[in-house]
């Protein structure tokens, strides 16, 4: 009975993921500013989420191995770490594609990209460590201890580092309203940073109901400079003109104007922000999260089973 249920669940994963793929391409609408590339968020975020789950399971079973010394715990820990590494690579590659579309470059050592790269190195070193030790018990013991230490870095590298850095271009605002979503308040002549773009407010001009800011924008390394003119409608308080930053699809918005101090709040309108406000996109995104999580557990079960069988065959060979 359990066997049949498990088989049915596996077929269910196949059908569910096929549905997610069809929905991603044919039901999710294009996102303004990103076009077809906006769909990549349906894969990018769930793969990152699954890698968090995988590394957590790897750490739990590493701890259980150190406690109970059962080889099955080690097999599950290794299988979870392998799947975690695979899904982290997928998240990195899909993120790079998104980055090319949104920022105009595949890799620019953004804090988010740097932290995920460090995480990849940490978990790649786990497998290097395992491959370097011949004694089975010692290999299991050391890799379990290493896996626990690696897990301690994971929440910091995944969640904390990219959010405490002021100069990230990653659209965190799509999910969490962090400090990077507040923009900068500038008076005329002052300089500030939005993401990794340097902005200087050169002047303000009233044009009817609009207040127009003259802003000098410099890309990282001062490779490109441009004068942009974002504006704010004083009657309805909404942003009017939102010019694009040079070489990217990010827009410069004028969000607030304080008449008393002459200060304005400038912010970056990141493509991807509010992507999930569309219902069809949101439901497909949630379905993808569920599908990828179920797929991970299936992969984990298959891989740990293969490791168990390999171990049993090796034991039989010795006996």
């Amino acid at each position: 009975m359990m066997q049949r249920l498990a088989q049915a669940a596996k077929i269910g994963i196949g059908v569910w993921m096929a549905g997610v793929i069809i929905a991603t391409f044919l039901i999710v609408p294009q996102y303004e500013g990103l076009g077809e590339a906006g769909r990549i968020v349906i894969v990018h975020v769930p793969t990152a989420w699954v890698s968090v789950v995988a590394f957590t399971i790897s750490a739990i079973f590493s701890g259980l191995y150190l406690w109970r010394r059962r080889e099955r715990d080690d097999h599950i820990a290794v299988a979870a770490a392998e799947a975690g590494l695979l899904f982290t690579i997928l998240a990195t590659v899909t993120g790079m594609i998104f980055s090319q579309v949104a920022w105009g470059i595949f890799w620019n050592w953004d804090p988010r990209q740097t932290s995920i790269f460090v995480l990849l190195l940490i978990y790649a070193a786990l497998f290097a460590l395992r491959a370097a030790i011949d004694d089975v018990d010692r290999r299991r013991q050391l890799s379990a201890v290493y896996s626990l230490f690696a897990f301690v870095t994971m929440p910091f590298l995944f969640f904390v580092a990219p959010r405490i850095a002021d100069s990230t271009l990653h659209p965190n605002c799509a999910f969490i309203q962090g400090s990077n979503c507040d923009g900068v308040v500038l008076e005329v002549g002052k300089v500030g940073l939005i993401g990794d773009q340097k902005v200087q407010l050169l002047g303000l001009e009233r044009q009817g109901n609009l207040i127009v800011a003259e802003v000098k924008v410099s890309t990282p390394g001062l490779q490109q400079e441009a004068i942009l003119y974002p504006s704010l409608d004083l009657v309805d308080g909404g942003m009017a003109a939102r010019p694009e930053f040079p070489g990217s699809r990010f827009q410069l918005g004028l969000e607030e104007y304080d008449e008393a101090t002459g200060a304005v709040r400038l912010n970056m309108e990141a493509p991807g922000t509010q992507l999930l406000e569309n219902r069809r996109t949101l439901y497909t995104f949630l379905a993808a999260n569920l599908g990828f999580t179920a797929l991970f557990f299936w992969m984990l079960q298959v891989r740990s089973l293969v490791l168990n069988v390999q171990w049993a065959v090796a034991q039989r060979g010795r006996a």
Partner: peptide, 15 residues
């Protein structure tokens, strides 16, 4: 994935 799963389960049963 299905084929690896089936093969591994068959091998385990055999063992």
């Amino acid at each position: 994935l299905w084929r690896i799963d089936a093969a591994a389960r068959a091998l385990r049963r055999e063992l």
